[in-house]
Nucleic acid binder design. Structure first.
Length: 197
DNA sequence: GACCAGGTCCTTG
DNA sequence: CAAGGACATGGT
């Protein structure tokens, strides 16, 4: 299943802070709308945990409005920022932690579930943590693999080489593939070609 | 106007 | 534990 038809996909080429921010903003939201918000945040120098932590709620909400769910997302960004600062004092210390520790801690932060935590680890901290999202689950279901996300994650990590760069590409390819061939969330209407070559 | 987007949390049964 | 609703703007 070497789907190189999409070439190398570069999601998240920003800093770790930006990846974390984007990971929350993209929850249930199109990436194009997230980019707009990130540009606005950049213009105000709000693309860091410290800045998020100290800015006014009102201002934060207004700036990320284009991503929808802006009130709850502002709360999630705030909770992540204060967690990072209180627990580690900053990204540098955070980056020294083990992957398992980081994952545990991230999952304890309000607004961060499995997918967001794994996205942050894989794309922000370059850790071999495979991301299972709705598209991946759907594709696997269509292919006959009806398992929970956590089981799928384990499976992917067992089959693929333990390399964050590989995980990043494979996940990105799966999403692009699903966007192209899956019809909404109804498997029986999907037009997925055979998964080979 | 209807439907959906790279989820997560909270409430119910 | 599974299922359902809430959160909200922007694009097709």
């Amino acid at each position: 299943m070497l789907k190189r038809k999409y070439g190398k996909i570069e999601w998240w080429r920003g800093t770790t802070d930006e990846v974390m921010i984007g990971a929350i903003l993209t929850q249930q939201t199109r990436w194009e709308n997230v980019e707009k918000a990130i540009h606005r945040l950049r213009k105000q120098n709000l693309c860091s945990m410290a800045a998020i932590d100290s800015t006014e709620w009102n201002n934060l909400e207004k700036t990320i409005k284009s991503t929808g769910f802006y009130r709850i997302k502002a709360a999630r960004l705030k909770s992540l920022a204060s967690h990072v600062l209180e627990r580690y004092g900053g990204i540098e210390r955070m980056a020294q932690q083990s992957t398992n520790n980081l994952r545990e801690n991230l999952l304890g932060v309000y607004g961060i579930g499995e997918e967001t935590a794994d996205s942050i680890l894989c794309y922000g901290f370059s850790r071999p943590c495979f991301v299972i999202d709705a598209y991946t689950k759907q594709i696997c279901r269509c292919a006959g693999a009806t398992m929970e996300s956590s089981a799928l994650k384990t499976e992917f990590e067992k089959v693929l080489p333990q390399d964050f760069a590989v995980y990043q590409q494979v996940h990105a390819h799966i999403v692009e593939y699903a966007k192209e061939y899956c019809v909404k969330k109804r498997c029986n209407e999907c037009k997925i070609p055979t998964l080979n070559g």
